[in-house]
Write a protein that binds this DNA or RNA. Structure first.
Lengths: 239, 239
DNA sequence: CCATGGTAACTTGTTGCCAAGTTACCATGT
DNA sequence: ACATGGTAACTTGGCAACAAGTTACCATGG
């Protein structure tokens, strides 16, 4: 029953934060005061406050109270445009690091194999990379590559810094993509660790493919998980 | 302390659901069984299960137990392309309804006024519309229009079905946009009611502007809130 | 006057117990 | 044989009492 009253309390507190009736660093009323104000049991107030804490609005100190965090304005990042992601980040004064975190064969998945035009007997590698901006992990980037298309991908992968550079070396001059899908998920434990965030941070999933524009052959299937709490993404489509 | 163990339980249960070790409709182990299995107090298991319920993985019946929902596959919707949103939906066999929910003056907001090139003394209207697909509320669409640019917007708004049609009537032939931003939020109480979803459903925010391509004058600022739990969005950029 | 320690009144964090609902089973009476 | 009702053992739901940490204040003793 308390679930709706909890939502009301959350909504009201967030509203107060937005309207700056509560200021960053300031102390919130105690659980008991709020319980009396909203005429609900303390546990309901508690659950509401814990949710606000998980959403990074507040933090708590046992014996003292709960305090408002100064919520950092999200950093704007550009995802579209002609130049490469690395170059765009550099030009905007951001420090971008990319760390390869994994390279492993995947089990047969119809969806991915279909996109890669791979047979069930083919081997497909998943190459995982972590994008770090100004020290903050920003995205997990998975590239799925068919060994049939790139026979030396396994031994090449440790030395690859940019997949685009790699494909260029392999003969591709112009890139293109057929489909791009947007969806949302919550991070698994592993993703929470990699992105150093908690389970309440929604992740933006971008799924796309990458094809050689001239030969029209598929290069890779890409799945990127962006964290949504620290960044705002510019997806302007230039004409 | 229990917050991390809670995350482990959530992760483990979701993993079991994905791997189909738990089947839709089947009963989960009781709170006490899970508490023993993970060696945690019952309250920790409880909190984990409540989160899973809020994320629509399961539902509970007092006295009986908790059961797995059959999670519906998200509907794919196309957001890009030359044709209008309405036409695209129709062509994909979806039934799209649009309901106007509000039309009101807004208080001065520098960001919006700046984009609309409006003076602080100008009046800006927010026109809110609800997009409903196959009976499921899908998005809240806010158009911000300057009265200075469209003096009769107030009396016209009730009869407007499509903003694009309206702008065409007002002389615009070709549309364009300058910037599009993507971010994520959780719904306010009002948004929860409009979209008939709970507070744990992330909303995708798309912010963009709409300009007359020939005169290069601003028509409106648009902010759309898409629910992310029922839909998957095709944002393919056609060449 | 000042330093120390104790106490009381607050805060958040934890836990265990009881209430409420469901099911299965069994004893009892017709 | 069968219907009824009671009971016990489960389930989830709710809450009050307790634990732990912080602060402020005051009494006490040097």
């Amino acid at each position: 029953m308390g679930i709706h009253k909890e939502a009301v309390i959350i909504d009201d507190l967030i509203q107060q934060i937005i309207e700056k009736k509560l200021l960053p660093g300031s102390k919130l009323p105690s659980e008991n005061e709020l319980a009396e104000k909203y005429d609900v049991p303390r546990i309901t107030v508690r659950n509401a406050l814990i949710k606000l804490e998980e959403r990074s609005y507040i933090y708590s100190v046992q014996g003292k109270g709960r305090y408002l965090k100064d919520k950092s304005i999200p950093i704007q990042l550009s995802l579209t445009g002609k130049t490469s992601f690395t170059e765009k980040m550099k030009s905007m004064g951001h420090d971008l690091k990319t760390v390869t975190i994994s390279c492993k064969k995947i089990l047969f998945e119809p969806k991915i194999y279909d996109i890669l035009q791979a047979k069930e007997t083919d081997t497909v590698y998943q190459i995982g990379r972590l994008r770090i901006i100004n020290g903050v992990p920003m995205a997990i980037h998975y590239s799925y590559v068919s060994e049939h298309r790139f026979p030396t991908i396994k031994q090449d992968s440790p030395t690859i810094h940019s997949m685009f550079d790699y494909y260029r070396q392999q003969g591709t001059e112009r890139f293109s993509s057929r489909k791009t899908y947007l969806s949302i998920t919550f991070p698994t434990l592993e993703e929470q660790h990699l992105l150093s965030c908690n389970s309440m941070v929604p992740l933006i999933i971008l799924e796309t493919d990458c094809v050689d524009q001239d030969s029209n052959s598929i290069l890779e299937y890409t799945k990127i998980l962006y964290r949504s709490d620290q960044f705002k993404y510019d997806i302007t489509t230039d004409p």
